[in-house]
């Protein structure tokens, strides 16, 4: 059985070393009809690293995320997670892969409106077999860790946009995923709230030892990640790697400008 993630590790703690590679893609090709969305993409992402995928609309960045995340099956090429080929699993296995090894943060609307925050977070753990009481306890710990103490019983409609995204981050991390995929995670937020969510997303994902893939068109959002690729016409046209992670600088900016969590 897959264990649930614990929020105990301190932010900024060194990512645990894993025996094999993280996420790897080779020669990914995907077409929609006569349109080529991906024209042969290679990509490597070590455990605990964060990667921003940037590009204009229609560049193929969302298709890339969907192929990496086992949502789409690429027409050609391979995706491996810790050395295991995952791109060509059948529908049921890919669903299981997404549930057990991946976490997802979408722009908005992924929380179930009738569930209170704590149950929204506990649900993936329950789906992976954790008993309700234990899943709920883990969910509480995650919410407290992400600055949402006292919000456990609120429903998504009673949370602000930033709070809801932090609940979504907790939901993505509770299963202890290998990779977290975030598709425009701050697209529905104002800039300061978005920066806040990105700080929490990158810090907690790193602390949990998970890789992070963020699809965004926003340079400010991409700057929170250690690596950045540019996608144009289905090809990777640029790859930037930070020598040292300077998220701390951005954090300092944020706390000077806007103070605490919102």
């Amino acid at each position: 059985m897959h264990t649930t993630g614990t929020p105990g590790a301190a932010p900024g703690a060194a990512a645990p070393t894993r025996t094999s590679d993280g996420l790897r893609a080779r020669g990914l090709v995907h077409r929609f009809g006569s349109t080529t969305a991906l024209a042969g993409v290679d990509l490597d992402l070590a455990p605990g690293r964060s990667l921003a995928v940037m590009g204009p609309s229609g560049s193929g960045k969302s298709t890339l995320l969907h192929c990496l995340a086992g949502i789409l099956v690429p027409d050609d090429g391979s995706v491996t997670l810790r050395g295991r080929e995952v791109a060509r699993l059948d529908e049921r296995e890919r669903s299981l892969l997404r549930r057990r090894h991946y976490g997802f943060v979408f722009q908005f609307g992924q929380l179930l409106p009738e569930l209170p925050a704590v149950e929204n977070v506990a649900l993936p753990a329950m789906l992976n077999g954790a008993p309700r009481a234990r899943a709920t306890e883990h969910a509480r710990q995650w919410l407290v860790r992400l600055g949402l103490a006292g919000m456990e019983e609120r429903r998504p409609g009673e949370l602000s946009g930033g709070q809801a995204q932090r609940v979504a981050v907790a939901r993505a991390l509770i299963t202890g995923p290998d990779v977290v995929f975030a598709d425009e995670p701050t697209g529905a937020l104002d800039q300061a709230t978005g920066a806040n969510v990105m700080r929490i997303l990158t810090e907690t994902t790193r602390a949990a030892g998970a890789s992070l893939v963020v699809v965004t068109h926003d340079k400010g959002v991409a700057d929170w990640c250690e690596e950045r690729i540019e996608v144009r016409d289905g090809l990777v046209v640029g790859h930037h790697v930070r020598e040292s992670w300077d998220g701390a600088a951005a954090r300092a900016d944020l706390s000077a400008g806007h103070g605490g969590l919102r």
Partner: peptide, 16 residues
């Protein structure tokens, strides 16, 4: 439809 689709993308099985 949106919440169904997103939950499914996140690995929630259709049978649920």
């Amino acid at each position: 439809r949106r919440e169904y689709a997103l939950q499914h993308l996140a690995g929630v099985p259709a049978e649920l």
